[in-house]
Simulated assay, not measured.
Amino acid sequence: MLETKELQAWYGASHILHGISIAVERGAIVALVGRNGAGKTTTIRSIMGLMPKTSGEIRFDGVDLTALRAHDRFNLGLAYVPEERRIVPGLTVRENLQLGLVASRAGIDERVAIDEIAESFPRLKERLGQEAVTMSGGEQQMLAIARAMIAKPKMILLDEPSEGIMPVLVEEMGVLFRRLRDQGVTLLLVEQNVEWALRLADRAVIIDQGEVVHESSADVLLADKAMQERYCAV
């Protein structure tokens, strides 16, 4: 579904990624883990076309993304949930969900799409008319994920979805991600909650100082506490 080859990225003069090559299988959950500052967020921002300067190759569902802008990548079925959520103040939950359809070219019926997404998120279904920023942090994270899902993407890039969320909502999120995988949606998950991510994922990739240093099944890395301590401990 997704492949990067020798992906390089810069913030100004700072060279952040040094040849990231990863592959994400269709219908899989892949966890991208490592310490803070390792380059995980930069990797998915580069894949989404949000970095000011990159080089290398990115292919998604057979299409070369290198010269495409972020909204073009979105229209190919690639969605992104940023760490900061970006819930729009002054808008209701329903209106924030509508934003997920604004740039879509898929011809999705808005009313049907919102009804369907609300069924997947019972907490949001109860709050469609509520101003979104008045909800809890965990509920806002659910809204950010729902907004990415509403246009029916083929793949979702998620940056730290469990951060600052109470455990019961984190577990609900895990159930949701498994259900999405079972429905054929591919997930690339950047996560500091390493144990939770590895229990959820099919495969794991460790990034350290802008380079891939380990790839394996998630189960193998989950059992390798020395590797986790070396590259993932805060």
Rank of each mutant, 00 (worst) to 15 (best):
S217N: 12
G62C: 10
R59D: 01
P52V: 12
I114C: 01
V170D: 02
R105A: 00
S46V: 14
K40F: 07
A28F: 05
A204L: 12
K154T: 09
Q98G: 00
E171M: 07
Q209A: 15
P153E: 07
S120C: 07
E171A: 12
L65W: 07
S136D: 10
I117N: 04
F74M: 14
A226E: 15
D159Y: 05
E95K: 11
E163R: 05
A106L: 06
A23C: 01
V24Q: 01
A9K: 00
A113T: 04
L189Y: 03
V234S: 13
L143T: 05
W10Y: 13
P122W: 05
L128K: 11
A79P: 01
A204D: 11
K125T: 04
R73T: 11
L7M: 03
R230A: 14
R35M: 06
M135G: 05
A233P: 00
H214W: 13
P52H: 13
G56C: 09
M149W: 03
G129A: 15
F177L: 12
H214Y: 13
V112I: 07
R147K: 09
R178M: 11
K125R: 11
F177D: 03
R178K: 14
D202C: 11
I108L: 10
I87P: 01
A118Y: 00
A218L: 03
W10I: 01
S216H: 04
A106K: 15
